[in-house]
Design a protein around this nucleic acid. Structure first.
Lengths: 216, 216
DNA sequence: AGTGAATATGAAACTTGATTCATGTTTCAA
DNA sequence: TTGAAACATGAATCAAGTTTCATATTCACT
């Protein structure tokens, strides 16, 4: 499915064989942690899944927590990369906003396992978690600043808005998780985007949909 | 600070003395779990803090997980109660929305410990977590439905909106946590509310702030 | 075909911490 | 006053699971 590549952290393997083994371990760890959670999953599960001996694990990682951290960082990058790639051609911030939501929801659905790891990091490696959101938030704030300057969105406190917008995506993703798959990503994205663009205010002056959208 | 009352779940004490002891244990557990998290906290910490023997714990709870669940349920109620009480007089949904955000942020700040327990329940007692948000979400959706019928907010998918709005509050709360106390609750609430009401759309027609609202 | 560095192994040592239990103390209704 | 139910105790038990280690294998290069 998704080949987990790793950074140079920890004990890097020196040969191709070692690199392959470490990759197998990361892959297995991602699946195990993702399925059963950090505490329920034991090293033996990981090594069994990776088809290597227990000791091999400690050739490449100092501790259980270390693999976990490595996976959080990996996932953090993957998420940002995925979203920014998806929206990179889009010049209008509001359009980008919608596309970003769709990208995020699809991504979270695709990568339930890795995604859960990021969430759980709040309770396993809090600094990694904070870092993930700090980076995310500051990039987001920046995008909004640029858009404000261009007049694409209304003036406002973009730091707060960034937190709010991140929260929206995350919870929509969660809502999908809770109510299982009865939700359709596009329906959700449309509805959320409508609120983000026009607000709840009943007196909003909504422009006629000029061009590319027709829902339902 | 906050006297933790308990429901009739688990092994209920039969006398006033027992009731007091169980309350002490719940109080202590709330603080310990809240400060250090479920896994880092051991029963011995709880009983030490409650100033009772280890064995006493098992007079009132079947397991470590059970206290935790009891606390999640307690906190879940407390949160809903606090918010609904705060906004209960308010008839306009948009005003209620702003008041709700303020209430939520203050509450989360007041009760960091209990709040963390709810968050962590996602990884310790997932069903309790899902339940918490399901209840929250359905109440929220309902409020939005009523408001829609009254014409207080624009027509839209209120189920999705409810998830989005919950996400906003939660992440604003988290933002406060991350960037420590540099944030002011009112500033945040104002900024978020502005977005929720008018959206990001640069062409929003914003009414003059004074009380000329006679939309029906 | 020899040599050392890297890699692999899994049984055992070790740690941690939840839960039990045998025993003691308090309460209170009769 | 008494005895049974409720409550309290913390040292000992025991399971779970991480990490170590002594040993074996493979690999890359002469």
């Amino acid at each position: 499915m998704n080949q987990v590549s790793y950074s140079l952290e920890g004990k890097s393997p020196k040969t191709a064989r070692g690199a392959k083994t470490k990759a197998k371990l990361l892959e297995a760890a991602a699946l195990e942690f993702g399925e059963r959670g950090y505490h329920a999953c034991m090293i033996a599960d990981i090594t069994r899944r990776a088809k290597v001996g227990m000791g091999t694990f400690y050739v490449y990682f100092d501790s259980k927590e270390e693999v976990f951290r490595e996976l959080v960082a990996y996932m953090s990058n993957l998420t940002r990369t995925h979203i920014s790639k998806t929206i990179e051609g889009i010049t209008d911030r509001l359009e980008a906003e919608r596309a970003g939501i769709v990208a995020y929801l699809n991504f979270a659905r695709e990568h339930k396992d890795l995604y859960r790891i990021v969430m759980e990091s709040q309770f396993v490696a809090e600094d990694a978690y904070r870092n993930h959101y700090r980076v995310f938030h500051s990039a987001y704030t920046n995008n909004l600043e640029v858009a404000t300057r261009k007049g694409q969105i209304r003036q406002g406190d973009n730091e707060v808005r960034a937190w709010a917008l991140i929260g929206i995506s995350v919870f929509l993703g969660m809502g999908i998780g809770l109510d299982d798959e009865k939700f359709d990503v596009n329906r959700i994205a449309d509805a959320a985007f409508d609120m983000i663009k026009y607000g709840l205010n009943p007196d909003a002056n909504i422009e006629p949909a000029s061009g590319s959208n027709s829902s339902e």
